[in-house]
Amino acid sequence: MSTPAEEHVTTSNSLNNAGLAPASAVSGAASTSANGAPDADRAVASRIRTFDNAQLRKDFDVQSAFLYLEDFLAPEVTAQLIAAARALLPEVNRNYLPGHKQGGSVSRHTIDRLAPFIAQLYRSKELIGWLEHLTGDKLQLSPADDPHAYALYYYTKPGDHIGWHYDTSYYDGRRYTLLLGVIDESSCRLDYELHTRNPDKADVPGSVQIPPGGLVFFDGDKLRHRITPALDNEMRVSLTFEYVTDPNMRPWRRVISNLKDAIAYFGFRQVFSQFARRNAKGEGV
């Protein structure tokens, strides 16, 4: 029986056990667009075809909808995300919730204006198809007014952290979180506990420090997790994508979700300005 640390390391190392070509052998095949950004679909495809995807699906299932890969993104994609994260530093909205959370965030609405490559990666058909293979679910994009659909999270000051929580879905269906490492000049770790919602399995603790280009993928309602506090002169930036199985949300849940996002993450202007613009155009909320 493996230890918790061995469990995720085994997952990460299972990619090339079937004699597949190393990812580095094909990563250079990803082409770039006219503006110099990598082609998201080709970049993702160049990686996932090197993986033992049947084994990864088994790992995801055995670990109660959780997967960690320390080397997922093609290098040129990681470089693009790092550049975007640094360029968006002036746009960070900082929040502090005593006893639970301290840090900064940039929502998908700001990303759409200033870092459109992130939106292209989020919508990659190759990426979504691979995630559907892992989950066995038909995945959909989060609605256009969801600021969490894709967002950057910044830990740049001493004590920046987030306490133990689940990524609770307010949608009628499941919501999956894809977490990508972007910048890691820190000692911060993702601590997690597997199987906490399964009474037939013992809880399994684990901890990873996600490098740039690394991936964590999980069902937000199943994984209990936290980010440990940053120290002096440290910087950690992560990017999350949220995919849903049903994009509908009951009105009272939408109110709760919007208030949570405004207070704990993106600020009232970022969250509610989208609704004001839609109402001005006569669109439904």
Score class of each variant (00 low, 15 high):
residue 79 A to W: 01
residue 80 Q to N: 14
residue 81 L to E: 01
residue 81 L to V: 14
residue 82 I to M: 10
residue 82 I to H: 07
residue 83 A to R: 13
residue 83 A to S: 15
residue 84 A to N: 12
residue 84 A to G: 00
residue 84 A to S: 10
residue 85 A to E: 06
residue 86 R to C: 01
residue 87 A to K: 04
residue 87 A to H: 02
residue 88 L to K: 11
residue 88 L to A: 09
residue 88 L to F: 08
residue 89 L to Q: 15
residue 90 P to M: 10
residue 90 P to N: 08
residue 90 P to I: 02
residue 90 P to T: 07
residue 91 E to W: 02
residue 92 V to K: 13
residue 93 N to R: 11
residue 93 N to F: 09
residue 93 N to A: 15
residue 94 R to Y: 14
residue 95 N to C: 08
residue 96 Y to P: 00
residue 96 Y to T: 12
residue 96 Y to F: 11
residue 96 Y to G: 06
residue 97 L to I: 13
residue 97 L to N: 10
residue 98 P to W: 05
residue 99 G to N: 03
residue 99 G to D: 09
residue 100 H to S: 15
residue 100 H to C: 04
residue 101 K to N: 04
residue 101 K to H: 06
residue 101 K to Q: 13
residue 102 Q to I: 00
residue 103 G to Q: 05
residue 103 G to W: 04
residue 104 G to E: 07
residue 105 S to W: 13
residue 106 V to L: 14
residue 106 V to T: 05
residue 106 V to I: 07
residue 109 H to G: 03
residue 109 H to V: 02
residue 110 T to F: 00
residue 110 T to G: 05
residue 111 I to E: 10
residue 111 I to Y: 06
residue 111 I to P: 03
residue 111 I to C: 15
residue 112 D to R: 08
residue 113 R to N: 06
residue 114 L to F: 08
residue 114 L to I: 11
residue 115 A to K: 14
residue 116 P to R: 11
residue 117 F to C: 08
residue 118 I to M: 04
residue 118 I to W: 03
residue 118 I to S: 11
residue 122 Y to G: 10
residue 123 R to H: 08
residue 123 R to N: 10
residue 126 E to N: 14
residue 127 L to K: 13
residue 127 L to W: 09
residue 128 I to Y: 01
residue 129 G to M: 01
residue 129 G to Q: 04
residue 130 W to H: 11
residue 130 W to T: 12
residue 132 E to K: 12
residue 132 E to N: 09
residue 132 E to F: 02
residue 133 H to A: 10
residue 134 L to K: 00
residue 139 L to S: 00
residue 140 Q to I: 06
residue 140 Q to P: 00
residue 142 S to M: 09
residue 144 A to D: 12
residue 145 D to Q: 10
residue 146 D to G: 08
residue 146 D to N: 11
residue 146 D to W: 07
residue 147 P to F: 01
residue 148 H to E: 05
residue 148 H to W: 14
residue 149 A to V: 06
residue 149 A to W: 05
residue 151 A to D: 01
residue 152 L to T: 06
residue 154 Y to A: 04
residue 154 Y to V: 03
residue 155 Y to R: 03
residue 155 Y to M: 07
residue 155 Y to T: 01
residue 156 T to P: 02
residue 156 T to A: 12
residue 157 K to S: 11
residue 160 D to M: 07
residue 160 D to L: 03
residue 161 H to T: 08
residue 162 I to D: 01
residue 162 I to F: 15
residue 163 G to H: 09
residue 163 G to Y: 02
residue 163 G to A: 15
residue 164 W to F: 03
residue 166 Y to H: 12
residue 167 D to V: 14
residue 167 D to A: 06
residue 167 D to Y: 13
residue 168 T to N: 10
residue 168 T to I: 05
residue 169 S to D: 02
residue 171 Y to D: 00
residue 173 G to Y: 03
residue 175 R to K: 08
residue 175 R to E: 13
residue 176 Y to I: 03
residue 176 Y to R: 13
residue 177 T to V: 09
residue 177 T to N: 12
residue 178 L to F: 13
residue 179 L to Y: 03
residue 180 L to E: 14
residue 180 L to I: 15
residue 184 D to V: 02
residue 184 D to N: 13
residue 185 E to F: 11
residue 185 E to C: 09
residue 186 S to R: 10
residue 187 S to I: 10
residue 189 R to W: 00
residue 189 R to C: 13
residue 191 D to M: 14
residue 193 E to L: 09
residue 193 E to D: 11
residue 195 H to R: 07
residue 196 T to R: 14
residue 196 T to S: 05
residue 196 T to V: 12
